[in-house]
Design a protein around this nucleic acid. Structure first.
Lengths: 325, 325
DNA sequence: CTGTTAGCGCTTTCAC
DNA sequence: GTGAAAGCGCTAACAG
């Protein structure tokens, strides 16, 4: 099966009684050929009649670009990633690009990268969990929440928000994040400026190990705990609860989404940045790079700010369902 | 910028000192050209050295197929769809196909269909919410949980399971589903066989309206309520709870996933079918159709069976996190 | 304003 | 065993 026999340019041209290149020029709005209204009409009619659609393969071959962007992601079962994919898809379509999906397996990007390279993608958005192969991708890449030499990034600018969050803190500050996040650098920078003792811990991916890590951190009783990663924030607040209120650090988390989790009394505030905005800007920056309007590597900064939990704005982040804001 | 300058067949051929068609034959394992080991070695080396990757656009153009399948889906924010997309992606890759994603907007498939058609996809998997344009897709299509004239489908075979679920029922049976589901037909068929009075109601998509619908149904006090759609099952059980136990119908729901919702005491049992299996078979059937190994339209039947809530097996379906089984 | 031509990278007969 | 040549559908220079 499968022999579509779609109409081609030549079919359309024959139908319209013109040369097929003229049809091409019509389609691409080539200014070199402003044909008579009469001709245009005929071409339009022929296109409609034959239900003609240009072959993207032929165009890709000819133009050297496929108007397709690869989303290199981890498991979509993770609702954060599903949201990102969703927004990216909509945004890319607006920009005239298709989205090809590829999933890393565990932390291994290798196969996913290969499957993307096998197609002639014009660029890659990286929201995967891995850290290796993707640096070698022979096309523009933009990654979120991580620093990568020579590649474009879209990172939240945490500095001012963290500074605000740490106001009034004088004791020890512990920060928690995954090791690819720019969060750690930000906490360090701000800690230096404020003259605070900060300590960063990378979170094990395994939930069991992570809980153990949280336990050991709580034992040291830091005055403030900064968390990048809402799942971990949930775990921490549950842990603090189970200890019965004897230890009450200032807990600040990063939120670029709404969720039920944020409602927890243990959280003193959120460092808020817009997840939707991040994805949108990631998409548009990538497209601009591809189209030569922006030079690579680009460094997109997503603004953030501190929202204390007693501010009315905070309640906007509380919502029964997880959702990027 | 984008000028990749990837190596082509000719580059490889020059490097290996052979004709470029020979390289092509090497790549495609063309039996017509079983070259000397020596030549093979040289070609292999050249490919590696130049980091050659075939141009999929050129191949697509030449071969008339792109080895790409479109997933026409609704919003991925819905975790059921995200799971399906996830599994489909993995499955399709195993089968040598890429996945292009397109999202319907609301119930409108139009733009999504167009964006898919614009690319030279070989086939479409339909898990969208819409009902219109997709019938006209000029390529093999397989849809899940709905009947469509002339197109392939992968539907759960509910009959036996429903028969089992209705054992012992003598009063009125009400069935609930979305209007595209094959669930309704199955309930009708089984009702006829068992000589039961069955009544089907289509569920409004809007949650508010749906709740009203459930209210009106409960007023009539049917002896059994069959639900296809776990979200609605949740709503119903909550509703029954709020009525304080005065009305206790036999509630049976369809489950092709695990979830916390199933734990509810109100549910007498689940009609179980494997969601993962459904997606996998959908993918492989579509690929077989595309490759001419299966004639279209294919009708895939996914088995199901009734699992009463007091059976030990039922507890396997109860899980904190939603997941396709 | 419209047509001619070359060629993107690849596969596939068909010769040698 | 290997190579020559045609052509998939399209675009863009270049002629007319």
């Amino acid at each position: 099966m499968g022999k579509r026999q779609r109409a081609t340019l030549k079919d359309v041209a024959k139908e319209a009684g013109v040369n097929f290149t003229l049809v091409s020029k019509f389609l691409t709005r080539n200014p070199q050929a402003r044909m008579t209204k009469e001709t245009q009409k005929r071409i339009e009619k022929a296109i409609k009649k034959l239900n003609y659609r240009p072959s993207s393969s032929a165009r890709a071959l000819r133009n050297g670009m496929s108007k397709t962007i690869g989303l290199l992601s981890g498991d979509l079962t993770n609702s954060y990633r599903a949201h990102v994919a969703n927004i990216a898809l909509i945004e890319l379509r607006k920009l005239g690009y298709q989205m090809l999906l590829a999933l890393s397996e565990g932390f291994d990007d290798h196969n996913a990268v290969q499957s993307l390279l096998a197609r002639d993608i014009d660029g890659v958005i990286y929201i995967g969990p891995g850290i290796h192969d993707w640096k070698d991708l022979p096309c523009p890449v933009i990654a979120t929440d991580r620093n990568v030499a020579g590649k474009s990034t879209a990172n939240v600018d945490f500095d001012d928000a963290i500074k605000e969050a740490l106001k009034g803190i004088e004791g020890e500050v512990v920060s928690l994040c995954f090791d690819e996040s720019v969060w750690k650098d930000s906490v360090e920078r701000v800690g230096n400026i404020l003259g605070l003792k900060t300590e960063n811990h990378f979170l094990p991916f395994d939930v069991h190990d992570r809980l153990a890590k949280l336990h050991s951190i709580c034992k040291k009783r830091p005055q403030a705990i900064l968390i990048n990663g809402w799942h971990t924030a949930e775990m921490l607040t549950e842990l603090l609860d189970s200890e019965g209120g004897s230890y009450n650090p200032k807990v600040v988390m990063h939120a670029n989404c709404t969720g039920p989790f944020i409602g927890h009394k243990r959280i003193s505030g959120a460092i808020y940045s817009s997840g939707t905005d991040m994805v949108k800007r990631t998409c548009s920056a990538l497209v601009e790079i591809i189209e030569g309007k922006l030079s690579e590597p680009a460094e997109i900064k997503i603004p953030s700010r501190y929202i204390p939990s007693d501010s009315p704005e905070f309640s906007n982040l509380i919502c029964r369902h997880f959702k990027l804001t």
